[in-house]
Design a protein around this nucleic acid. Sequence first.
DNA 1: CTCGGTGCAAAATATTTGCACATTA
DNA 2: TAATGTGCAAATATTTTGCACCGAG
Lengths: 127, 127
Amino acid sequence: MVRHSRQRDAVLANLCSRYDHPSAEDIYLSLKPEMPAISLATVYRNLAQLESDGKIIRIGSGGTARYDGNISPHYHLSCLQCSGVVDVFMDDDCGICEKAAKVFDGTIISHSVLFTGYCSECSKKRG
Amino acid sequence: MVRHSRQRDAVLANLCSRYDHPSAEDIYLSLKPEMPAISLATVYRNLAQLESDGKIIRIGSGGTARYDGNISPHYHLSCLQCSGVVDVFMDDDCGICEKAAKVFDGTIISHSVLFTGYCSECSKKRG
DNA sequence: CTCGGTGCAAAATATTTGCACATTA
DNA sequence: TAATGTGCAAATATTTTGCACCGAG
């Protein structure tokens, strides 16, 4: 049985209100002012819970895990210059799961795509 | 200037000879018998070097990084049951980079796809 | 000979866990 | 009140770094 908790609500609300795909620590630091007693362990525990409930997405962008409160299907790009992760929305996902299902001898449930390159701002700076 | 080293050759050879997408420590343990003095730090340093040389691929499958010596374009699936990572070869990548380039206001260099589901063996076991 | 590479140990990160206490249903 | 959640500190990974020595070119 999953109960309500102020901390979990706060973690989810914080994540859904921002678009920078924060790490657990980013969220922790962001919540600290309004909730001084919250601990990093609680943030980790709640992120894991929310993820397994399908309410948030974990982006395994290499080292530190980052999270996304937007669970509508979309992809991400990890910027080689600023190390940020930005959204890539595609109207058409190319039916990639269906195509993979035809050639893969197992069960495909979902997929994630991580592009590598430069985000809009860094792209402009680089000319 | 990059020099030759027995250790780097061994790391690359080990990675290319297996298809289980090992972690740095897996490789370290696998090399230990034939090269008792090798250190885990050296494996990490060489994996980073080989990756930036484009000779191997790092798979950010969540927590621990895993590596792949097969640099031909292909995708991966992370098995929810056995936690293994297996290859998913697709003849047609759906032109996903091109499609993304049309809607994304930045620069896309490459992409990786990680499917989630059950590998062939675990799929069969689950019926 | 001169740098890059290595091994080792220690440091830096990132995440998880045990436990006593607080909180929710 | 029964069970889940929390805070704190300690334990676990996981990966990186400083440094003296080794080895390839």
